[in-house]
Simulated scan of single mutants.
Amino acid sequence: MDTISMISTWEFAALAAAAALVGFSKTAVSGANTVSLAVFAAVLPARESTGVLLPILIVGDTIAVLTYRRHTHWPTLWRLFPAVAAGVAAGAVFMLWADDGAVRVSIGTILLLMAGVTMWRRRQSLEDRPAPEDTLSLKGRVKARSYGVLGGFTTMVANAGGPVMSLYLLSAGFRKLGFLGTSAWFFLIVNISKVPLSVGLGLISARSLLLDALLVLFVLPGAVVGKLCADRINQTVFERLVIGATILGGLQLLLR
């Protein structure tokens, strides 16, 4: 990864801010790290950016698990994991042949789709939102498998499974703490399982880990700020900013 050694001071500052946002998103607003994804893919070659970002996400996931581990709903996770594994496998096959251009277009498209999903979710008021479904019913199982496959594919290709899983957990009726605790364990397990695949695909190397060693120093401060803001943040304003930045990042990658 020769590109990594050529990062300028301003580019490193942008990556550091994106790493801090990863920590913030893991303890406050799940899915906000789509902005981090856009920053990493803009500064680094798109294909390499997924490998550099993965260890940073794992550090953020670990902090989130330590913070919200008591609120995890394991039955939901066990129902999701088989479908997620299928999605991750499909994503790994895609990454096996995809060049940087294909990955860049894929990430940009996924970001725009995820922004669209998030806007659709926000348009549903609390009163209009359907009642939580029985996840053991046929419809509930089909829904879990569909979201699981899509979440696994998007997280393998672009580390962008957050909005997909956020939408699923919200539709399943999770309240704030249960949402954060369940998603924390979900992404920690899934992201760790992606490491061998990412190493095999050449996305993670000794050089990329050196950059990670510097960037992870910014994850903890972001997580601390997120925990302090979790109960005070104006969710509506922040989500609008996240959506806007995600759309701009996706368009930037597609038009690059």
Results as ranks from 00 to 15, higher is better:
residue 165 M to T: 04
residue 66 L to I: 11
residue 64 A to F: 06
residue 111 L to T: 04
residue 256 R to Y: 10
residue 197 L to G: 02
residue 179 F to L: 13
residue 105 V to G: 02
residue 43 V to N: 05
residue 39 V to T: 13
residue 128 D to H: 12
residue 252 Q to S: 14
residue 229 C to R: 11
residue 18 A to S: 13
residue 240 R to V: 06
residue 121 R to L: 12
residue 106 S to E: 02
residue 34 T to R: 01
residue 183 S to G: 15
residue 237 V to H: 13
residue 132 P to F: 09
residue 61 D to N: 12
residue 251 L to C: 15
residue 70 R to W: 07
residue 134 D to W: 07
residue 20 A to P: 00
residue 250 G to P: 04
residue 90 A to E: 01
residue 52 V to Y: 07
residue 216 V to M: 14
residue 71 H to K: 09
residue 132 P to W: 09
residue 120 W to S: 12
residue 88 V to G: 03
residue 169 L to D: 01
residue 75 P to M: 06
residue 215 L to P: 06
residue 101 G to I: 08
residue 46 A to C: 03
residue 218 F to C: 12
residue 145 R to F: 12
residue 56 I to G: 05
residue 174 F to Q: 09
residue 31 G to E: 05
residue 252 Q to H: 14
residue 15 L to I: 08
residue 241 L to W: 15
residue 155 T to S: 14
residue 97 W to V: 11
residue 13 A to L: 15
residue 49 S to L: 01
residue 224 V to M: 14
residue 213 A to D: 08
residue 67 T to A: 15
residue 119 M to R: 13
residue 171 S to H: 09
residue 30 S to M: 13
residue 53 L to W: 00
residue 190 V to L: 11
residue 130 P to D: 08
residue 1 M to A: 10
residue 168 Y to V: 03
residue 252 Q to C: 12
residue 210 L to Q: 12
residue 6 M to G: 15
residue 235 Q to G: 13
residue 44 L to V: 08
residue 105 V to W: 14
residue 234 N to G: 05
residue 85 A to L: 10
residue 175 R to I: 11
residue 12 F to A: 13
residue 170 L to N: 11
residue 160 A to F: 00
residue 120 W to N: 10
residue 77 L to C: 09
residue 160 A to L: 04
residue 43 V to S: 06
residue 126 L to M: 10
residue 154 T to G: 00
residue 85 A to F: 10
residue 14 A to T: 09
residue 21 L to P: 00
residue 40 F to G: 02
residue 9 T to R: 14
residue 163 P to D: 07
residue 81 F to G: 02
residue 154 T to E: 00
residue 123 R to Y: 11
residue 192 I to N: 03
residue 219 V to P: 05
residue 180 L to R: 11
residue 107 I to E: 00
residue 179 F to E: 05
residue 143 K to R: 14
residue 3 T to A: 15
residue 175 R to H: 12
residue 58 I to S: 05
residue 63 I to K: 04
residue 41 A to Y: 02
residue 108 G to E: 02
residue 74 W to I: 11
residue 121 R to W: 07
residue 151 G to M: 06
residue 63 I to H: 05
residue 5 S to H: 11
residue 45 P to I: 03
residue 53 L to M: 13
residue 193 S to L: 13
residue 43 V to Q: 04
residue 11 E to T: 05
residue 199 V to N: 08
residue 168 Y to D: 04
residue 26 K to C: 07
residue 122 R to C: 04
residue 207 R to F: 06
residue 208 S to M: 08
residue 45 P to H: 04
residue 235 Q to M: 14
residue 146 S to T: 14
residue 253 L to N: 05
residue 110 I to Q: 02
residue 28 A to M: 10
residue 33 N to I: 02
residue 209 L to V: 15
residue 148 G to T: 06
residue 135 T to Y: 11
residue 72 T to E: 02
residue 104 R to F: 01
residue 55 P to N: 09
residue 31 G to D: 07
residue 114 M to D: 08
residue 102 A to C: 02
residue 158 A to P: 00
residue 90 A to R: 01
residue 31 G to F: 06
residue 191 N to A: 06
residue 150 L to Q: 00
residue 230 A to D: 13
residue 185 W to M: 13
residue 178 G to T: 10
residue 202 G to Y: 07
residue 19 A to E: 06
residue 55 P to F: 08
